[in-house]
Design a protein around this nucleic acid. Structure first.
Ligand code: FES
Ligand code: FES
Lengths: 146, 146
DNA sequence: AAGATTTAAGAGTATTTTATCTTAAATATA
DNA sequence: TATATTTAAGATAAAATACTCTTAAATCTT
């Protein structure tokens, strides 16, 4: 459902949001190299994907020593769907699951009535969930993967 | 979410199920060439994918004139998940949405608690929906795409 | 038996996605 | 000002997926 690029990006955004809460990193740029290393991701792949998030205005970047990226909005204002939309686009939520040209209630495929409902719920989840929510889970649960 | 191979296969299976209801095609083999033509799919791609469904015991195939494929079970006994499992596998339903090695309630990622629920509902839909259900929609609605 | 039809299987090609590399540009710091 | 650090951008490479082709095998029809 999510591309590898999108999965990595979401993980990294959650990581940045979480780190930004700590006094030490408050308002500071965090280097992409550090993020990739800490999360076990490819620095190359992550920086490439981050370029889209920067262009889209979700991240601010800064070059040179002490440079890196930081969130342009508080974690509570950044939804998962914002990241998905930038990296993967909204095709998943707009297109027919059986691959037909268009998807609509008026001209449905034979499983549209069942699928549209599920898809709406997934969309709703990605719209409602913010980086703040993810951070809260990290703080709340033991044994959680970041 | 579904691969192109899987989308095509599901459409084709629904088509076969629907056709099999008609007296003329009752218990007959339906040629893959005809199916692909009628659905606007690639004959090559579809026949390749069908090979998996044949091996998996969802389809029976027969070569030569009047050959083709036919369902091995009544449409009410073939669930969408059966087709998905054969063509795409169950990775989508088993793996972590953020790409972590394993997915479990005991060792979750930071959005597992939200995602696991949605994923369960999608799985449930694919488990509950049979080719018979799709056919009923085709009969029930106008303007439906097959 | 011969020829036509149809799927099976494996090889081959094309496209997309993933991942990496290289060079340039910006900027902090010494 | 020189150097080191860090992202930007575009080119390249590798891997996965999508799609096509060729030959063989099965089997129906004549
Ligand atoms: S038309 Fe197929 S999912 Fe909407
Ligand atoms: S651990 Fe990530 S979805 Fe379950």
């Amino acid at each position: 459902m999510l591309s590898a690029a999108c999965r990595d990006s979401i993980r990294a955004m959650i990581y940045i949001a979480n780190l930004s809460k700590k006094e030490k990193y408050k308002d500071r740029f965090i280097s992409i190299y550090k993020i990739a290393r800490d999360l076990g991701l490819s620095f190359y792949f992550l920086s490439k994907n981050f370029q889209k998030l920067v262009k889209a205005g979700l991240l601010e970047s800064h070059r040179g020593p002490q440079g890196g990226v930081k969130l342009l909005k508080p974690p509570s204002k950044i939804r998962l769907i914002d990241i998905v939309a930038v990296i993967d686009g909204m095709d998943f939520f707009n297109n027919c699951i059986l691959g037909f040209e268009k998807c609509s209630d008026e001209n449905p495929c034979s499983i549209h009535n069942l699928w549209a409902d599920k898809r709406r719920q997934i969309l709703s989840m990605f719209e409602k969930t913010t980086l703040e929510d993810a951070i809260r889970n990290i703080e709340k649960f033991e044994n959680i993967k970041v």
